[in-house]
């Protein structure tokens, strides 16, 4: 029988390793209820193990982290489970501050503080900022620092009705990425800056500059690339008077994202640019067809 997380399930005969694999699998299936029960059992066993064996300690950390993750994400969220998740993360950080789970636990504590998980929950940006700051100070070189920096900056940007706060957030993240240009989150950070400059502070010049930085690193989300190319091209052409950049991105829409549905419009836009700026000798690439040109070319026989 499966553990529901509330009842007592029978795990006798299963080793810790087996349980851990099973629990991790359930987590990967988004079965937070089942994962919660399994991690709880591993944690219980680890706590009952006499002596301070490294295995038990390792299992305890894994189980506590897994249990907290499951509790945080069980649906529908309840105040009790959210509190339990926060307690477990805090316990983990306190008991094993050097463990590989500690930075993510702090980050998750920050998210718990700033997200309204249920109706009674209140957003606490100050508390969230403290957790993110701790991650940034303790693990400044780790990959997770990029995420912490983004979250930290966003606690300022979320005060959108206070321009000074938004500015502070933007300054922080811009200086952070300048110091850590190789961060795995570099593309996300540049895109973030671009979006905030375009949509919140409404500074198209800075926005396009940042978007282009993100593009230089490589946009990480393929489904939005056509929209971003279009955005860069449009703003460059219409607001920044930069036809070269605009043309380049329109061309890329046609050649790199022919299935986006915007290739034809990009051709039209290129036509307009070419007419307005003949000196640039703008090329209008052709749109890739979908299927074989000659449909009569019947299916080849099996080799």
């Amino acid at each position: 029988m499966w553990a529901t997380g509330c009842g007592d399930a029978d795990f006798t005969g299963q080793t810790d390793a087996e349980l851990l694999t099973q629990a991790t699998d359930e987590l990967s299936y988004y079965n937070f209820d089942r994962a919660y029960g399994l991690f709880a059992e591993i944690r219980r066993r680890a706590e009952e193990t006499e002596g301070d064996s490294a295995d038990a300690e390792n299992n305890w950390s894994r189980a506590t982290f897994g249990m907290a993750t499951a509790a945080q994400n069980r649906t529908p969220p309840s105040p009790r489970m959210i509190q339990e998740a926060a307690d477990l993360y805090a316990e983990l950080v306190e008991r094993s501050p050097a463990s590989e789970f500690a930075p993510r636990s702090l980050l998750n504590l920050g998210r718990l503080a700033e997200i309204q998980d249920h109706r009674q929950d209140r957003t606490d940006l100050e508390a969230a900022r403290r957790y993110y700051s701790e991650v940034l100070e303790t693990w400044p070189e780790a990959a997770i620092a990029g995420e912490a920096a983004l979250r930290y900056a966003d606690t300022f940007v979320q005060r959108y009705d206070n321009p000074a706060s938004v500015r502070e957030g933007l300054l922080f993240i811009a200086s952070w990425i300048a110091e850590q240009p190789e961060s795995p989150y570099a593309s996300v950070i540049w895109e973030y800056l671009g979006q905030v400059h375009l949509q919140i502070t409404q500074e198209p010049g800075l926005a396009i500059e940042n978007y282009r930085q993100a593009d230089a690193v490589g946009f990480i989300e393929p489904t939005v690339i056509p929209s971003l190319y279009w955005l860069i091209a449009q703003v460059s052409a219409e607001q920044l008077n930069d036809p070269e950049t605009a043309a380049r991105y329109y061309q890329r829409i046609i050649t790199e994202t022919p299935r986006s549905g915007r290739a034809f419009e990009a051709q039209l836009a290129l036509g307009v640019l070419a007419e307005a700026h003949p000196a640039l000798e703008i090329e209008i690439p052709a749109i890739e067809e979908f299927y074989l040109i000659d449909p009569a070319d019947s299916s080849e026989p099996a080799p």
Partner: peptide, 30 residues
């Protein structure tokens, strides 16, 4: 889930999948 799996399966954190969902989350600004 992405972060926990990376940690529990001893894989490098901040894989592409995780960065994609973080991007999606952070661009919504809560």
């Amino acid at each position: 889930v992405q972060a926990a799996l990376a940690l529990l399966q001893d894989e490098p954190e901040a894989g592409e999948g995780l960065r994609r969902v973080v991007r999606r989350s952070v661009l919504k600004h809560n």
